[in-house]
Amino acid sequence: MHKPRYTIAVTGLNAIDSPGPGLAVIRALRAATSFQVRIIGLSYEALEPVIYLHDQVDKTYQIPYPSAGQDVLFERIAYIRSREGAIDFLFPNFDAELYNFIKLEQRLASALGIRMFLPTAEQFDARHKVQLYEFGSKHGLDVPFAKAVFSVSEVEAAARGIGFPLAVKGKYYDASIAYNADQAKQYFNKINAKWGLPVLLQQFVTGTEVNVCGVGDGKGNVIGAVPMRKLYITDKGKAWAGITLDDEELVRITGKMVQETNWRGPFEMEFVKSADKYYLLEINPRFPAWCYLTVGAGQNQIEAVVNLAMGVEVEPFDDYKKGTMFIRYANDLIVDIKEFEKISTEGEL
């Protein structure tokens, strides 16, 4: 059977202790059975490890930070495409860059022939941490109460309204648990300095952390959904090991979210299971760093997303292997300084 060969650009190459999903996405693309790939890495910094993994990434280009804006990003992608001849698909993998890529989706497709398969701007905004409580109320999902805070002077009153302990969260990343008003203010300042405003104060729910990695087709159908429990959590709250669960309730809740919102593209739903009740903590509008587990469990959701964008018919996955584990590991790459020099000075490797 003839397999098409796609050139696919991927961001999120920071395979560090709080890893981006890029490497997992690339491995899944290379494991695809319906197409072959040439992988173009898109990096922000010269020390993103996956740049130097030459068996995974064929060529890497640096791209501008999201704060540079959509036009600068478009120009850089247009340059990369001119060098590559074609880019068939692009996988943005960072929360902070997604807004720009969502806004550029039509332009990249019509002007450069680069496809993506992303949530709409409305879906992206509606599931934002700041709006998640309202999102949950609207769609019948249990979400811990949260309040967005824009000034340190608001923190104490808002925190006392929620009660202690509570979670102090950045709008994109970072969360700390505060046990009193002083701690809440301290974390507010720290997170504000790093991620900006608003900072979120959220009711703290104890229990077991469980996540779902899935894909919606944009028409209310779930293409795939794999629930996972974190077995080993790093001090940054990231899963360093996990296992797929046999949990029909989580799959049902996921289906409800996708159906009610007509979710388009990949997502990760993060829950805390407390006394047999699932509290939705976050919806990340992209694949998580552990998404290669879905491949191991029999659902190559990453391959499915590419095929959806390419107009290839995709059958929804109806099962996955329960009890499949992943264990992450750290490794040291030996790198010639000439490679570091090239990506640092020329922005390409």
């Binding site: 077991t208 996972m228 429990r229 077995l231 996990g242 296992i243 797929t244 669960l245 046999d246 949990d247 329960k322 009890g323």
Partner: peptide, 18 residues
């Protein structure tokens, strides 16, 4: 029903991952 028990005495509950 879904609890798996191996011959070596390893017991796995796929509902909780324990």
């Amino acid at each position: 029903k879904n609890v798996a028990v191996s011959e070596t005495g390893f017991l796995f509950n796929p509902s909780t991952g324990d």
